[in-house]
Amino acid sequence: MRTEMNNIFVYCEIENGAVADVSLELLTKGRELADKLGCKLEALAIGHGLQGIEKKLAAYGADTVWVADAADLAPFRTLPHAAIICGIFKEEKPQIALFGATSVGRDLAPRVSSALHSGLTADCTSLEIGDHTENKTGKEYKDLLYQIRPAFGGNIIATIINPDHRPQMATVREGVMKMQEAAKPGAGEVKTVDYKKYLKDTDLAVKIIEREMEERKVNIKGASVVVAGGYGMGSKENFGMLYELASVLGGEVGASRAAVDAGFAEHARQVGQTGVTVRPKLYIACGISGQIQHTAGMDQSAMIISINNDEAAPINKIADYAIVGDVMTVIPKMIKSYKQNSK
C-alpha cells in the first residue's frame, strides 16, 4: 500500500506581494487536515519580492514555506511554476496538494497532475479525511482525501478519491472554505528553492506582453442586502440598475454564473456553489432562474425576493416573495418606492 505519511502542500497565489484569500482559505483547511493526519502543512510561495511572506503563511498554519523568488517567476506563467512544483513534489512526495480554483490554479494544477500522473478533482466544495475499501479486491485504504464536489451540472454531489496515486490533488474556489488564522501559528520555516535546477529554457518561452489586473475588493459576503442579477438582466448595461438599487438599499450586487459568464459582472460577485456563499438579511434575485448551483449559495438568506417573468422559475420555490414581472420595469419601481417610503 502506498499511503506514505507525507505532508500536505498548498500552492499559494501571490500578486504584488499579497497572498490571495483563496490560498489563506486553503491553508486554513490544510491545517485542519494536517492536524487530523498528524502531518505537516507546507506552503509553496513562487514569485518575486517574497521577503517576509512566511510570516503571513505561518499565521495561517504553515509549518514550512518553500520560497522560489526571482523576476522570471512573476507574474505567474504556467510552465516555470509547474516545473518547480513538479520538481519539489518528486522529491517531497506530498500526500495531498491543494490549489485555488482560480485562473491560476485551474491552469496550473492540471498541468502538474498530468506530469505526475496523479488524480485531480476540480472545484471541490468540501474536503474530508476517510477510509475506503475497494469493492473488487477488498483492499483497504486508510486516511484518504475525500474530494467532494458537485457534478453533472451540479445535480449530483460526488465524492472522489485517488486511492493509488500521490499527491491527491484538488482545487477549491475562493470563498468556499473558511479563512481563519491558526490557533497555534506554524513555524513558517523558510526553505529556499534552488529553482533553476528544475527549469528548462523552453519553460520561459511564453512571454507576457501586456497585463492589466483590476484592483478589486468586492465583498458581498459581508453585505446585509444582496441584489443579485442573472442572465435575465440581459446586458451589462442593465446591471447598472442593480447597482443603483443596491446602493439605495445599502447592499452589494451579486450575480449568477450565467451572468458572470456573459460578462455582465465580475466573478467576485458570483453567488453559488462555485462562487461565494452569502447569508444576507435580504436577497433579491433579479432574472435568476434559481438552479441548484445558484441557490446553494443563497438559500440560507433570511428573506428572499425573486423578480422573474416566468412564474414557474425554480427560484420561486425558495422565495418568500415572488414578483412575477419584467426586471426592467419592476426594479425602477422598487428604487422609486423605497426612496419615497424611507423618507
Binding site: I160, N162, A322, G325, V330
Partner: peptide
C-alpha cells in the same frame, strides 16, 4: 487515478412563495 466513491442526488425542496405582480 480518480475514482468515484459515492454519488448523492441533490433534492429540491419547495416552500410557498407569496406571489406578487409587478
Amino acid at each position: 487515478p480518480t475514482k468515484v466513491k459515492k454519488i448523492e442526488n441533490v433534492v429540491f425542496q419547495a416552500k410557498e412563495a407569496k406571489k406578487l405582480t409587478g
